[in-house]
Design a protein around this nucleic acid. Structure first.
Length: 938
RNA sequence: GCCCGGAUGGUGGAAUCGGUAGACACGAGGGACUUAAAAUCCCUUGACCAUAACACGGUCGUGUGGGUUCAAGUCCCACUUCGGGUACCA
């Protein structure tokens, strides 16, 4: 009987649905295991063969864990808010909700064919009001919280107002936008509006005037990680800097905890490094500089306090508030002109040409150690947003300062012995200091590291400044000028934001007919006619009723993509709960994600935001674990493998790859689906496009050989392979196994359908162990042969280890070896074959179910028990040693498995063959590597 | 520039602690079965040398150049090159 995968897969997919095989419930009697994939954005193009890679990998793990007796949560959902649906809506007028649902349905159809063990009963969609209820709720929580630096935790804002009313800002140590100073008295005298304005400086979700990445073409701001090379990640449109009032999340408050948390989770080092770099912790010193002939002082941040004796000028960022204060009347004109010029240059231009520009402010600062007057310059190589927006420049030991000094002909004082600074600066933090002394302190003779420490101490003691830690991590901008996103549950009274009361959430996205910004430049929600909040009736009402008494306009921005994806893993734990994001009970049971699988492109976006979001919820008592994703695996990208044909110039004749050098040819992409093993199906090619109907071919060995290259998988390269097609031709089990067989999960690799036959053959061969050609069922109960026991138990050990290590490709190889051995051994032992079925179940679930049923088991193979390797069967009587001379392998000898090194050594030296290789010399040394090698050094 | 990760046959890729490369699979070549095809099965397949043949054997081989070691794909130093991240972060 043949392996009829089509029938088998259809049968079992149906049965899984009917019997709710993959529905999971909280079960205190079992240990939990939570497997999660990064949920997809359902794009219009559907799935290609690369998308399911991570899902298959995690599905295998989920099924494996279930077979080991864990209660496994393996959910799936959709990140269904986003730009493409909205862009499509703008172009076609089609409502994004409709395209989104269509796309989701298409995804679902495709996913269902692959046989995942997802519990679809727990599906979430970020655009579903029942879901974004909790996104809005979390936002309000953040609005009503501040971050206490002392206790390293978010706390309710009431605690802060209480403090203010008693002590003002005295002794306050909290995360804030700018340092404010007021007394309790002053606070108590403030109007409500003034108080609200002050609180905005401390809230974790706050409205802030910030420089944003504005994309005029998309009409929206973008987060830093949505901007790539100065253009938008989606669409590739130019992005400019613009100051806007935006909702922000005080992610920066969590910088240290985000850093520390990395130590407690099992992620790859490269991913942790990427996050560390993104957070960018840097320990340094803040130092005060007096301005000459003025009572102004300003603060700079430096990591190289040791180089203070080499400061020859100071630089302010053009946007710095100090610029106005330090510009002298004589320099006013030049400075204004410079500021005007830098404003016009976009970030992109600044990075692209990297010209040294700047202007002298006219003021001088006093070096606190040398008392020398040093000029203060203004230049755009100093950023307003980092540190204090002002630096001390040490051209000898900083390449940027060096370039500036050379350009404007400023002095360069070397501070490190032996450093040649005539051509370039010496930036390395190593060497012995010189030229660094005054009456009070000398760094001369110390190493750089010692000097940094010495200066920190000195600066602190002399109150010249303080030791300070800076982070590169910025607050996240949380407003988007878009339609297709979560609306903010916020209304505006007297220009101040107020939260719509929690019990009236969710605030549902209103209908609009136009998805573009309004004519007055407001976001698309400006088109909504029913978008005002009545505080009297607590309901959304018509805009026309806005009266500034009880009815107020609602926020027109929506939330960004990462809002909905930041806590979805918690929602899967309790998706139908309408009282809470997740019940305490379910949260307590599932804890956090044990294994998270997704692309590394989210390293500095989603994976930072959701860690932040979860830490915040943890602080406020809603998530038991501080870290959301315990172990993380990055699956690699599946690239496309394009095929080419070569057309001879100005003809309709195509020449095969091997002969193309003889002609002048143009390579053209050809649909990979009409090419097999790089051989073109000529008839299919002729039929592919009308202009090729009468194409002619120059063949080699009667075949047309195509060229190939690895490129991104995309329609325009004609290299998209659809999983449906593979499933149709080979079956889902073959697809699943082949995707894993292709190489390590973490590695990026091109999709090449060519090798798939091997895996398919393997499944047929496995089937052949159960059924002969006539359809007789072969397995019978009885005693297994010793060698079969060994083959199978070797496999159990290998596969178990490999799955744990996520090394699926080697594990599939092991299956192939084992099945070959069993075929050779003509093994028909029912017991052993049953074990094979369980082992293969995570990889090829449909086939496994079918065989499991044929073996007479009444329940699903999903509820079988993972076999355990019995080491007894693996024991060998004898072990083959490789005997080498001077490191060169010469011959093999067998020894009893329990022979000790001395016995082996002696036997080898006595052996006739050894005598031959030793040529009468006496051996100097004999090394016995247990179970492997005997090396004789002569 | 900085940080991270790679480089192994015609191809995808194997190879715990350093243990004597190329597992497994594809492709290719040859053969068996078949009227034929498909399917299936068997043999060969890193390069070079040796050999009438069978058998046995030799040299070189994991991006390049050095080094450590009885032994290096694996460790160390320098470099080439390809990915990924990040970028005036003081």
């Amino acid at each position: 009987m043949e392996y009829n995968f089509r029938e088998i897969e259809k049968k079992w997919q149906q049965r899984w649905v009917e019997q709710k095989t993959y529905q999971v419930t909280e079960d205190e009697s079992k240990k939990k295991y939570y497997v999660l994939n990064m949920f997809p954005y359902p794009s219009g193009a559907g799935l290609h063969v690369g998308h399911p890679l991570g899902y298959i990998a995690s599905d295998i793990y989920a099924r494996y864990k279930r077979l080991q007796g864990f209660n496994v949560l393996n959910p799936m959902g959709y990140d269904s808010y986003g730009l493409p649906a909205e862009q499509y809506a703008i172009q076609t007028g089609q409502h994004p909700a409709i395209t989104t649902v269509n796309n989701i349905n298409r995804y679902r159809q495709q996913l269902d064919k692959i046989g995942f063990s997802f519990d679809w009963n727990r599906e979430v969609r970020t655009c579903d009001p029942g879901y974004y209820h909790w996104t809005q709720w979390a936002f309000q929580k953040m609005f009503n919280s501040f971050y206490c630096n002392g206790c390293q935790q978010a706390q309710p804002i009431e605690k802060l107002t209480e403090w203010f009313s008693k002590k003002g800002t005295e002794g306050l140590d909290v995360a804030c936008g700018e340092e404010l100073h007021f007394s309790a008295e002053q606070w108590n005298r403030m109007s409500e509006k003034e108080q609200q304005n002050v609180l905005m400086n401390y809230r974790i979700a706050y409205l802030g005037e910030t420089m944003v990445n504005w994309c005029p073409k998309l009409g929206t701001v973008l987060a830093n990680d949505e901007v790539v090379d100065g253009v938008s990640e989606r669409g590739g449109f130019p992005v400019v800097q613009k100051k806007m009032r935006q909702w922000c999340l005080r992610v920066s408050a969590y910088a240290q905890r985000l850093l520390d948390g990395l130590e407690t989770i099992e992620w790859t080092d490269s991913l942790k490094d990427a996050q560390r770099n993104w957070i960018g912790r840097s320990e340094g010193t803040e130092m005060e500089f007096k301005v000459k002939d003025s009572d102004v002082t300003f603060t700079i941040f430096t990591t190289r306090a040791d180089t203070i004796f080499g400061v020859t000028f100071m630089v302010l960022a053009p946007e710095s508030e100090l610029v106005a204060a330090l510009t002298t009347p004589a320099q006013q004109q030049d400075v204004s002109a410079y500021l005007e010029r830098t404003k016009k240059r976009t970030e992109r231009e600044r990075i692209a040409d990297r010209k040294v520009t700047g202007v002298f402010s006219g003021s001088y600062a006093i070096n606190p150690l040398t008392q020398e007057a040093i000029p203060v310059w203004i230049s755009d190589y100093v950023l307003a947003g980092y540190g204090t927006g002002a630096i001390m420049a040490v051209p000898a030991h900083d390449s940027r300062d060096y370039a500036f000094a050379k350009h404007f002909d400023l002095p360069i004082i070397p501070l490190i012995e032996g450093a040649d600074v005539s051509e370039e600066s010496f930036d390395a933090k190593e060497g012995i200091m010189m030229n660094s002394a005054n009456a009070d302190i000398s760094l001369n003779g110390l190493t750089v590291k010692e000097s940094i420490a010495a200066m920190k101490k000195y600066v602190t003691e002399k109150k010249l400044g303080r030791v300070k830690v800076n982070y590169r991590l910025r607050d996240a901008i949380f407003s988007r000028q878009r339609y297709w996103g979560e609306p903010f549950p916020v209304y505006y009274k007297d220009g101040m934001p107020y939260m719509i009361p929690e019990q009236y959430l969710p605030v549902e996205l209103p209908e609009v007919t136009d998805f573009k910004p309004t004519e007055t430049g407001e976001p698309p929600l400006g088109h909504a006619t029913r978008w005002a909040w009545d505080t009297a009736s607590n309901a959304i009402v018509d805009n026309s009723k806005t009266d500034n008494q009880t009815v107020f306009p609602i926020e027109l921005n929506t939330m960004p993509g990462f809002a909905g994806s930041s806590a979805y893993y918690l929602r899967y734990m309790d998706p139908y709960n309408n009282k809470a994001l997740v019940s305490a009970k379910n949260d307590q049971y599932w804890q956090n994600v044990d294994l998270y699988v997704g692309g590394s492109e989210h390293a500095t976006g989603h994976l930072i935001y959701s860690r932040f979001w979860n830490k915040f919820l943890h602080d406020t008592g809603f998530s038991v674990k501080e870290e959301p994703f315990q172990k993380l695996v990055n699956q690699g990208m599946i690239q496309g493998r394009s095929n080419f044909v070569y057309r001879i110039k100005d003809t309709n004749t195509f020449v095969s790859l091997g002969l193309k050098e003889q002609y002048e040819v143009t390579p053209l992409h050809v649909d990979v689906n009409i090419v097999a093993n790089d051989i073109l199906d000529i008839e299919a090619f002729k039929a592919w496009r009308p202009e090729y109907n009468d194409a002619e071919f120059i063949l080699e060995d009667g075949k047309y050989v195509c060229g190939w290259a690895v490129e991104k998988m995309s329609k325009s390269m004609f290299n998209v392979v659809n999983p449906d097609m593979i499933v149709e031709r080979y079956g889902a089990d073959t697809l699943r196994m082949y995707e894993m067989f292709l190489g390590p999960v973490e590695q990026s690799k091109p999709w090449d359908t060519n090798g798939i036959d091997g895996v398919h053959r393997f499944l047929k061969k496995l089937w052949g162990l159960f059924f002969d050609r006539d359809g007789n069922f072969l397995p019978v109960a009885g005693e297994a042969s010793k060698e079969s026991l060994k083959s199978v138990h070797k496999l159990i050990k290998k596969v178990t280890g490999d799955i744990e290590a996520f090394s699926y490709n080697t594990s599939i190889s092991a299956f192939m070896i084992c099945v070959n051995e069993l075929v050779q051994q003509k093994c028909n032992n029912k017991d052993l074959l049953s074990q094979i079925v369980v082992l293969i179940a995570p990889f090829a679930p449909h086939l496994a179910e079918e065989l499991w049923e044929q073996l007479g088991n009444p329940t699903s193979v999903c509820d079988a028990q993972w076999p355990v390797c019995n080491e007894e069967y693996l024991k060998e009587d004898t072990i083959r040693y490789t005997i080498s001379f001077n490191g060169k392998a010469r011959f093999n000898m067998e020894f009893p498995a329990d022979a000790d090194a001395a016995t082996i050594q002696e036997a080898v030296l006595k052996d006739a063959q050894s005598q031959r290789w030793m040529e009468g010399k006496t051996p100097k040394k004999v090394i016995v590597v247990p179970r492997k090698i005997v090396n004789v050094v002569v």
